[in-house]
Amino acid sequence: MTEKETILKAEARDLSFYYGQAKALKNISLPLYDKKVTALIGPSGCGKSTFLRCFNRMHDLYPNNHYEGEIVLHPDNVNVLSDKVDPIEVRMRISMVFQKPNPFPKSIYENVAYGLRVRGINKKSILDEKVEEALTNAALWNEAKDRLQDLAFNLSGGQQQRLCIARALAIDPEIMLFDEPTSALDPIATASIEELMDELKSRFSILIVTHNMQQAARVSDYTAFLYLGELIEYNETKKIFTNPDRKETEDYITGRFG
């Protein structure tokens, strides 16, 4: 364990997920600690993105999907997968950054402000303040402050992804989900996003899906290895990358398959 005390923020309990009849996740149990980064690694199609998207009920947008098991948020003990919990409530607490930067075709300012507008906040003074704060925390304020009314797609790819992070930050989430956030970016933009994640984890819990094992090793405190919808191994990142318990994990990490 690391020097500071670790607090449990969320946990998946015996989580299974089905696309129609196909079981994509098999009885996964996994903790998520507050102010820590948890990385999900595994070969393509292993279910890591599927698992991540359970946390903000993204699967509810498409027909014929269903969940079994629980994802419990602490300290209030809400099971986000429960039918009684509105997925919109879940998405207001847990925000997400997608694989490809997906800013709205609106201004930089309106992109960041959108989450607040959805919550009925339309007062300019509040929006101005929150937009600046979010852009600052996403390390984009200096580049964007003179062009807030510019259309978002005029930014570079890396800047667009930081804008998406700012958009997700503005709503002050409890957990932030990153779905391969750097897979569409060049190495320099990737480094700046990774650096940013290191700063952001002091605010909330982060769950990140990554294809890149070096990235998992660099940014995360805990790592989970998924294979064919099953959780093979979960441990501190250092342990997973230096001395994994399972042979499959070792094979994957050393590049023998994947």
Binding site: N56, M58, L61, R91, N102, F104, Y114, R117, V118, R167
Partner: peptide, 21 residues
């Protein structure tokens, strides 16, 4: 594109907020 819809939903938008906005 679906990615724009997902972005709006992920911020807590309702269906009507997503459609109208």
């Amino acid at each position: 594109p679906g990615s724009i819809r997902e972005a709006a939903y992920a911020l807590g938008a309702t269906r009507w907020q997503m459609v109208s906005g």
